[in-house]
Design a protein around this nucleic acid. Structure first.
Length: 150
DNA sequence: GCCAACGTTGGC
DNA sequence: GCCAACGTTGGC
């Protein structure tokens, strides 16, 4: 069992959208480290902290879980997509996605400000200055502590 | 809207 | 393979 934090801006996709849809194909990841997590390390059933970035306030807004094995992200082949990648081919896809399923919405969210103030969470990648990776690995301890704070 | 951090690109 | 330029992220 692995634990993850996955970032998305609320304008792009929100926890309410996920609550409505049930499952979401997490497309648009265009960072190799984040892609490698999805491609190589994620397993169905892994637990996910759903993080809203550029939000008011930013923070963990709920829980989700990994609901599929990785597959090619179709937006890389779609010329009309913002995520189109000229160098990707269907024979050799460059980017993958996984399905993410809704588990729970936090009300209220666990804000970034709270996370920064909590000594138990001091080691989280999220609170490292300049850390922008959109998919991060999270320890079981940190995951469970955030669930407790919610 | 600002700006620091950092990943990617491309010339050499 | 170096590294400067450029683009993006994301908190504030």
């Amino acid at each position: 069992m692995n634990y993850w934090l996955m970032k998305v801006e609320p304008d792009t996709y929100s926890i309410d959208d996920l609550a409505r849809d049930g499952v979401y194909a997490w497309d648009g990841v265009r960072n190799y480290q984040a892609r490698n997590f999805m491609r190589d390390a994620m397993r169905v059933g892994d637990k996910v902290l759903f993080y809203a970035s550029n939000a008011k306030p930013s923070g963990v807004v709920g829980l989700a879980k990994i609901a599929s094995v990785p597959r090619a992200d179709p937006t890389q082949f779609d010329q009309s997509s913002h995520y189109f990648d000229q160098k990707a081919t269907t024979e050799k896809p460059r980017w993958v996605l996984v399905d993410v399923a809704f588990v729970k919405k936090f009300a209220p969210p666990v804000t970034l400000a709270e996370i920064k103030l909590d000594p138990t969470l001091a080691g989280m990648l999220l609170v490292r200055p300049g850390q922008r990776l959109s998919i991060q690995s999270v320890t079981k301890k940190h995951y469970e502590h955030i669930v407790q704070l919610a």
